[in-house]
Amino acid sequence: MVPFPEHHRSGAGGADFLGQLGNPVELELGAELLKEVKTKKVYIPGEHDWYLDMGKAWERMFGAPYWSFDHKGVRFIGLDTISHAKDFWTIRKMTPQERMGHMATLDGTLGGAWAAVGPEQLAWLDRTLSSWPKDKPVVIFSHNPLFDYYAPWNFWVRDWREVNEILKRHDNVTSVHGHVHQVLYHEIGKMRSIGMLATSWPWPYAPKGVPKLTKCMVRVDPGDYFDGVGWSALGMNSASKVDNEYVMWRKDVYATATADSGCGDNRNQVLHPRLADAEPPPITGSVK
């Protein structure tokens, strides 16, 4: 099982184009690269896969956007947490490319609560877990985190509480998520959440709402395409807990000194939502 790259670079010298914006050529290239991985592969979609053609090419290539299967006493679940944007494009006469471009902007203002599971999938999740013993491990994959994390950047699944209502019946749940492009770890009740690194570019920690970080990722050099990005090796240990090891192209994953740390980079920073937003009060704060 492998994480699916949300973005990738390609072309001679790595610079012909960057990003993964749902173009079938890009999706096919991603699938081609992953052919090297011979183990069973399962996929969940990210928003970059979806909003060019509303998931048509992705579903044709990779199947259903949510699923479950059992392997060695673990129930694995994949969720679609990205497809719930309300139609903001028709009235604005946006092209599919414009729609995708807007959804690919982290502080985009039109998508609303697009990061969500929705009632239909919640009912499916409830049914899927109703027969699973409460003491057996559950590993659940979602693109976005299943906890509150800075709504202005669309970082989190808006109906995560409903998801958690179902998951909290179980004693051993590990949520593995992407989207934030950061070293991130969080615990809510018995559910542990582990954030995956990006394969493209990292994002700064949000000015507010960052879970208490035991380890901060490095402060990234924006001129180095291979800095602050990477992948994870995840495994189930003998105590039926998921271990995670971050692997970066560059040697340092974590840093503590202010001058070297992504948490240090988040200091003395008062940020304001875009004028296009409804001017809520300024957001201040730093990593706790």
Partner: peptide, 27 residues
């Protein structure tokens, strides 16, 4: 020319720290 915009790495112009310039800029 990469498809990237400034905001893709700097939502709300975060992590730009305009108030820390001028300075010696490593890059």
């Amino acid at each position: 020319r990469t498809g990237m915009s400034c905001a893709m790495c700097h939502p709300f112009a975060s992590d730009v720290h305009p108030h820390e310039f001028p300075k010696f800029q490593e890059q």
